[in-house]
Amino acid sequence: MQDLVIVSTGQMYDRVSISQWMGKGHCSCPKTGQILAHTRLIPNRALYNLISQWCNAHGIPLDPMENTDITSEFVAMASSSKAAIEANKATTEILVQQLSNGTQGAKTVTARELHLLAKTGKENRACIAEAGAIPLLHDLLSS
């Protein structure tokens, strides 16, 4: 626990471990299973400071934390979130079209995809509702 970082889902990992996870092609959070909105790793300075204080009190050496400009990280994360919301809107529109025009099997798969998308945030749930998916999902469930 020397280089603690936070991923887009809010979970914390050691940089080396999460970098290895993402390096293997995973684009989801290992703990929550949510798709990562971006791959930036935000340093967890608060916890690092607590660990540093504990190490100093117990005479344990600790390597300094990577020096990054956290302000620019948060600005980049905010703009990435806007891009992610727009991408999710486009995905929702495609899924609603499939839900409207697809075969029964395709509709079932699409409903699962919408369910996964809805689990990842209130913005996504709003997009799904605005795209007109609720009556289509109701009809699918009724059948």
Rank of each mutant, 00 (worst) to 15 (best):
65 M>I: 05
110 T>P: 06
123 E>A: 15
30 P>L: 01
12 M>L: 10
115 H>F: 14
55 C>K: 03
42 I>V: 13
52 S>C: 09
126 A>N: 10
135 P>L: 07
143 S>L: 08
138 H>W: 10
57 A>N: 14
142 S>P: 00
131 A>I: 13
139 D>T: 08
42 I>G: 04
85 I>N: 11
56 N>V: 00
39 T>R: 06
86 E>R: 10
103 T>E: 15
6 I>K: 03
42 I>D: 03
10 G>N: 08
71 T>E: 13
123 E>F: 12
28 S>W: 00
18 I>R: 00
117 L>Y: 07
124 N>E: 06
53 Q>P: 01
54 W>M: 02
75 V>R: 06
70 I>T: 13
10 G>E: 06
101 N>P: 04
75 V>Y: 08
123 E>Y: 11
57 A>L: 11
75 V>L: 15
39 T>G: 08
34 Q>R: 05
118 A>Q: 08
1 M>G: 14
143 S>P: 02
112 R>Y: 11
74 F>P: 05
92 T>W: 05
139 D>C: 02
107 K>S: 06
28 S>C: 04
94 I>Y: 03
88 N>W: 04
83 A>F: 03
126 A>K: 11
45 R>Q: 12
116 L>H: 09
82 K>N: 14
22 M>K: 01
49 N>G: 00
79 S>P: 03
46 A>M: 07
46 A>C: 05
46 A>R: 12
129 A>C: 06
137 L>E: 02
132 G>P: 08
22 M>Y: 02
20 Q>Y: 12
56 N>I: 00
69 D>R: 06
137 L>V: 14
90 A>R: 14
129 A>R: 14
89 K>W: 11
55 C>T: 09
101 N>V: 12
12 M>V: 10
9 T>I: 02
139 D>Y: 04
75 V>Q: 07
135 P>C: 07
53 Q>T: 02
21 W>N: 04
64 P>W: 09
140 L>Y: 08
27 C>L: 01
68 T>H: 05
30 P>G: 03
105 G>S: 12
38 H>M: 02
116 L>P: 01
113 E>V: 15
12 M>Q: 10
93 E>M: 15
78 A>T: 13
96 V>W: 06
83 A>E: 14
101 N>C: 13
5 V>R: 05
138 H>P: 03
20 Q>E: 15
78 A>L: 12
125 R>T: 02
109 V>D: 15
30 P>Q: 05
63 D>K: 07
71 T>L: 14
8 S>V: 02
15 R>G: 01
78 A>C: 12
120 T>P: 03
45 R>W: 11
67 N>P: 05
22 M>G: 00
24 K>P: 00
65 M>L: 12
141 L>E: 10
55 C>R: 02
134 I>E: 01
136 L>Q: 05
31 K>L: 14
100 S>H: 10
81 S>Q: 09
61 P>L: 04
63 D>S: 10
21 W>S: 04
64 P>K: 13
70 I>E: 01
112 R>H: 12
104 Q>C: 08
111 A>E: 02
103 T>A: 11
77 M>Y: 10
105 G>I: 01
103 T>M: 08
138 H>T: 15
19 S>E: 13
5 V>A: 04
87 A>R: 09
108 T>E: 14
32 T>I: 12
85 I>A: 10
41 L>T: 09
125 R>C: 10
115 H>Y: 12
49 N>C: 03
56 N>P: 01
85 I>Q: 10
39 T>F: 06
135 P>H: 07
110 T>F: 11
129 A>V: 10
20 Q>K: 15
